[in-house]
Computed example of a mutant assay.
Amino acid sequence: MEVVEAGHQPDTAHALRLGPACRAPVAALRPADSPRTTGEDPEHVRLLAESEDELPPIIVHRGTMRVVDGMHRLKAAVLRGDREITVRFFEGSPDEAFVLAVRSNTGHGLPLSAADRRAAAVRILESHPQWSDRAVATAAGLAARTVAALRSRIPAPAPAPAPHGGTDTGAPWQHRVGRDGRARPLDSSEGRRLAGRLITDAPDASLRTIAQQAGISPGTVRDVRDRLRRGEDPVPLRVLTAAPPPERARDDAHTVVRLAPPGERRTALADSLHRDPSLRLSETGRLLLRMLQVRTLPPAQWERIISTVPAHSTGMLSAAAAECAEAWQQFAARMERRRCAGE
């Protein structure tokens, strides 16, 4: 059996396995678990049926006999009256088969629509929550920031055990697997604080030694060391607000924001900004504060709004909200780069 590498795409086996090309009865195949929400394009099927060229093998999930990639080719074969079609069988789980279907449909043939790619990304996030935003984005043909915005609207999965062979000691699995298959901690704040203590106790220790002890990368250790030299907290504000560590007393301006639930964090941040006279006394600052105020509604208000949206508008509003979230992600990234440049 041939091993087709997944382009460093993480999955259970870190590779997608396909058998050799063979012939299979058309009647034995089942419709695809397709990422196409609108189904196949009849005109594309007709063009394929009229083609005299030999069509590439379709991919079929052996466990279910569902088509993974090639529904247009299968329907073209049916239209021509063919009893058999060339296939390659995929050995893997149904979830892996769906990921392969998405990757195949974003890499060749009739491309997926933007809505189909977003819907596929949400499904992959639900079946593979440990994958990084960039890994999911590669599979779905989206930008990583778009996947991050989609992930923020999905309830967090229940804690799972640490990956097999990891160094965890029974704590919940809080890692993300990147495109290279490597697991990285989701929240680096505790590792940063441990690295800060290790650097203080052994300032001559190498970055790699401290990284191994703290469970973070040497590059993160270097950043911690530089921050300590400047007299700063080893954990940047972006880490504190994005993934708060366990509660602890901290006498600083971010304690309430960091320890509050997400909805309250947004309100606390907005209230703090509203007290800034440099924003309140400028036209662009007041515009920014008004934009933030709309996005800091309490959860109950959001629920009332959602319940009143007519069914025929939900798809369009979902797409518009995703685009707005992406714009705010870009805005946040530019603010962070500006903050870092001023340090």
Results as ranks from 00 to 15, higher is better:
139 A>M: 03
164 H>Q: 09
113 S>A: 15
134 R>W: 01
104 S>L: 12
335 M>F: 09
89 F>P: 05
230 R>D: 14
55 L>V: 13
228 L>S: 08
184 R>Q: 15
30 R>M: 10
289 L>M: 09
151 R>N: 04
150 L>R: 00
277 P>E: 03
118 R>M: 15
38 T>G: 06
265 R>E: 14
179 R>H: 02
33 D>K: 03
24 A>G: 07
61 H>N: 12
287 L>S: 09
11 D>S: 01
2 E>V: 03
43 E>A: 15
184 R>F: 14
55 L>C: 00
181 G>A: 01
142 L>D: 00
343 E>P: 05
92 G>P: 10
103 R>N: 10
20 P>C: 02
98 F>E: 04
279 L>H: 09
291 M>L: 13
182 R>G: 05
170 G>E: 03
22 C>G: 09
270 A>N: 06
123 R>A: 12
299 P>R: 11
309 V>M: 12
134 R>T: 06
299 P>W: 12
305 I>C: 10
323 E>I: 12
275 R>W: 06
266 R>Q: 13
133 D>Q: 00
110 L>C: 12
232 E>K: 03
159 P>T: 12
276 D>T: 14
170 G>F: 08
118 R>D: 15
142 L>G: 00
9 Q>V: 03
77 A>H: 11
136 V>S: 06
267 T>D: 04
283 E>Q: 08
267 T>K: 08
341 A>S: 14
203 P>W: 01
10 P>K: 00
23 R>Q: 14
6 A>C: 08
198 L>C: 01
215 G>W: 08
283 E>T: 14
158 A>R: 03
60 V>M: 06
3 V>M: 01
167 T>H: 06
145 R>H: 01
100 L>I: 05
288 L>D: 14
61 H>F: 07
206 S>D: 01
176 R>V: 13
258 R>V: 15
